[in-house]
Design a protein around this nucleic acid. Structure first.
Length: 96
DNA sequence: CCCCTGACTAGAA
DNA sequence: TTTCTAGCCAGGG
């Protein structure tokens, strides 16, 4: 178990239902800025009981291979998903 | 120790 | 707008 692993696991454990974060955010909060790739690599390796579905790509894009399942889980927590993409705190001009 | 792959990100074409 | 390239960290052969 490396420091990187428990750091990431701890961040994911600190997340709440409906709380969606990007790989970069997780890596940053874990104390490993720039290790976004490592986060994804770990989530695929780890068998721990972690809410991996709350982790999305930059811009809320579902980069996970099980994007379909991830979308369902996110919706179940009240997170609106649109065409494989989660509507983050996006309030662009002339939205909707 | 060296090389390749990957649930990533940001920038250029 | 979409597609491609370069840089990044960690793991495996």
């Amino acid at each position: 178990m490396t420091d990187f692993e428990r750091a990431v696991l701890r961040v994911l454990a600190g997340l709440a239902p409906g709380e969606v974060v990007t790989y970069g955010e997780v890596a940053d909060q874990a104390g490993h800025p720039g290790a976004a790739r490592a986060v994804g690599a770990l989530l695929r390796r780890t068998t721990e009981d972690v809410p991996w579905w709350r982790v999305v790509g930059a811009g809320g894009l579902l980069r996970a291979p099980s994007a379909r399942l991830q979308a369902e889980l996110l919706r179940a927590e009240g997170v609106p998903v649109r065409d494989g993409r989660v509507t983050l705190g996006g309030s662009p001009p002339g939205n909707r």
